[in-house]
Amino acid sequence: MIEVQSLHKRFKKTIALNEISASFQKGQVVSLIGPNGSGKTTLIKCILGMVKPDEGQILLEGKNILSDDQYRSRIGYMPQIGRYPDHMKVGQIFKLLKNLRNHTKSVVDEELIQTYGLDSISDKSMRTLSGGTRQKVSAAIAFLFSPEILILDEPTAGLDPLASELLKEKIQKEKNNDKLILITSHILSDLDDLTTHVLYLQEGNIEFSGDMGNLRKITGEQKFEKAIAELMKAKGN
């Protein structure tokens, strides 16, 4: 579905992405992992069109994403840190996005709004919300238009364990709906049961790319967390 072709990006002197090529398909849950500064977020931002690559391109079903903005209507994005205008109300944010997305055309999925109880605080302004609640809003926004592609940047980072669990259930559900889900996370255990594929980045290079079976085979570990640790160890040496 998404085809990343020899993507190259440098910020001043540091190389953020070095000739990255990858391909993501429907029904996959891809874990983007790697240490801080390895290029995970840059890759995500490239897919979202926020960072423009120096070389290479990203194709969405064969079409270069930079050719128009409309492709993003097929993507739901949950950022690492969600900050919203102080005086905007929770309900207004959802309303605004529905306006921007022209939601009459697509089905609206308000499941997370309900499970997180956001509908009951729709009159509260964003300023009064805790960091965790803001993350809940971000998550709800990502799933709101039941997009074919979900990009979640450190989704469970600010969430309490319960909310985190609910989110995982939701991801599982969408996975079963044959969606493509890209997740970056450094809390490895969170992703255990969901991940089907792994993309391991380090200093802008892909160090490992493949499905979980493959990863287990290579590292000889059954548990995802251990397998990754094994991978890091191997690359470290």
């Binding site: 979202l48 069109g49 926020m50 903005d69 409309q70 492709y71 993003r72 209507s73 993507i75 994005y77 950022p79 840190i81 969600g82 900050r83 919203y84 205008p85 996005l97 921007l100 997305r101 971000s138 926004i141 990009i151």
Partner: peptide, 15 residues
């Protein structure tokens, strides 16, 4: 201050 909000908006289909 709006930087993150702008980012969120830019993830939507809008130029």
């Amino acid at each position: 201050n709006s930087y993150e909000f702008i980012e969120m908006l830019l993830a939507q289909p809008i130029s």
